[in-house]
């Protein structure tokens, strides 16, 4: 059975479906969002999620996520 997870993602509340076989991981979320994992960084509840731990960092309803990248700046 799939379970839904409500996240606050870059300031917006959004509902995601977790995979059938377990909780939603950061890597699965990034793939669902269509993001290139090599070009973004993720913060969960104000703590960095190291890239090496995307596959084993599980998301739960109420989590606050920031997903950022580099843009032009001076």
């Amino acid at each position: 059975m799939q379970s839904s997870v409500t996240l606050t993602l870059n300031g917006e509340r959004r509902v995601f479906e977790g995979p059938a076989d377990g909780p939603l991981s950061v890597i699965v979320l990034l793939v669902q969002l269509g993001l290139d994992t090599r070009k973004v960084a993720v913060e969960r509840n104000e703590e960095i999620v190291p890239r090496s731990r995307y596959a084993e960092t599980w998301l739960a309803s109420g989590d606050q996520l920031e997903i950022v990248h580099f843009i032009g700046g001076g």
């Binding site: 917006e12 993001l35 973004v40 997903i67 950022v68 990248h69 580099f70 843009i71």
Partner: peptide
């Protein structure tokens, strides 16, 4: 080069 860090446009 200097760069800024901003939210990804989802």
């Amino acid at each position: 080069v200097t760069v800024a860090v901003r939210r990804v446009n989802l």
